[in-house]
Write a protein that binds this DNA or RNA. Structure first.
Lengths: 212, 212
DNA sequence: AAGCCCATCTTGACACCGTTCAGATCCGTG
DNA sequence: CACGGATCTGAACGGTGTCAAGATGGGCTT
């Protein structure tokens, strides 16, 4: 059963890390068909396996989605870290982080959607994404300290500022693709300029204007 | 068939404005069971009608959702207008609009979710909400002009500022319910204070701080 | 090296979903 | 009063999430 596919080296079990294969299949489907095309059966089909097989690796469909979301937050963190590392000036760094956030959401809209659906419905996952030592949130927090948005002893106010930035970035990420902005984008000579313009009105991202 | 329910006056057809009844049933389900419980069959069941009946009033499930979204945007506009009318100081008015927006989303989370799912997928509906003369967007725009965020001849910049405000409000509306903010909310003595604190860091809503 | 055990995968089934279509029902109109 | 068309029902199709029971085969014990 199921051609052994000889050139993939030794496989621990019947399939060989089906969990990994399922996650890859799922992200492939998300990027290809969008969130609407993501069904457990479709994922199993894409991975070349029976519809019930995933239940040995994920308790639920929601647990599959949660795993996808975790991977997504990991990639987002990586992308933001790379962007932040490339920008030395603190002011510009905050702006770059905001821009990177929106760019990620634009590049993988369906995955981004799953990420925030999970954040809403579950309690476990977002903590992992937000509080992780290396998470994107702590990168933002450090950058916000660097621009002096709040003195280090005003922990509460700093937290509020970071949350505000996160909310603004999230809102922009979800709305940047809306059709009614197309005219304005064209008038401004491209989405990049549009994005920078909007960010420039969002306090902490003000410096983005110079990156247009 | 189907007890005539004699005390509802004359009904034009078999049921009597089933379209209205379906929309009511749908919003009832959304408020009770959340977005996950919203199925065409469930709506029909709630309205006491066969599963195929809705197809004589809505081409699609998506068309039902779109109708719900339109109603939602209407209610949102009404609520924002009422709030804006009650606040005379321009600065406070902008803050009040932002707060009202978030409050609406918090009061009807599932409906709000449907509203923005439709905004994303369709092109027709959001225009109706944004461009409507009396829409919430124009209320925001007028308030933004009043606080002098951009001189009237800088139409583009004004538009960008309004979009920025809208994005920030949307992001906050979607994230305000996240569990990881619970600790901070408690520390600040309530969600109201938390909300005002976050808004105070979002440029155009700065005045919200005084409303805590 | 033989054999057992259990994780893994498959098959088949159930309930629910969106959607369609032929037919029953009932309203206003001629 | 009969007709026509809008409205609703019933049954059906393919797709979905989920579960229970059986087949399979790799790794551990002896």
């Amino acid at each position: 059963m199921k051609a052994p596919c000889p050139f993939t080296g030794p496989r621990p079990y019947h399939h060989g890390d089906l969990r990994r294969a399922l996650l890859d299949a799922a992200t492939r489907i998300l990027d290809r068909d969008g969130q609407g095309g993501l069904s457990l059966r479709a994922v199993a089909r894409e991975a070349g396996v029976s519809p019930a097989a995933p239940y040995h690796h994920f308790k639920d469909k929601s647990e599959l989605m949660l795993a996808i979301a975790e991977e997504g937050f990991g990639q987002l963190s990586d992308y933001i870290r790379r962007t932040a590392d490339m920008t030395v000036m603190p002011m510009e760094r905050v702006a770059a982080i905001g821009l990177a956030y929106v760019e990620f959401a634009k590049a993988h809209p369906a995955v981004y959607r799953v990420m925030y659906d999970c954040s809403r419905d579950s309690d476990a996952m977002p903590d992992k994404a937000h509080n992780a030592e290396e998470g994107a949130y702590s990168l933002l927090k450090r950058a916000m300290i660097d621009i002096g948005v709040a003195s280090p002893d005003q922990e509460t106010d700093l937290e509020l500022a970071c949350i505000a930035a996160w909310c603004a970035a999230h809102g922009l990420a979800e709305m940047v693709g809306f059709k009614q902005f197309d005219a304005l984008k064209a008038e401004m000579g491209g989405e990049k300029a549009f994005l920078a313009g909007v960010l420039s009105h969002l306090g902490m991202f003000g410096q983005a204007r110079s990156r247009a």
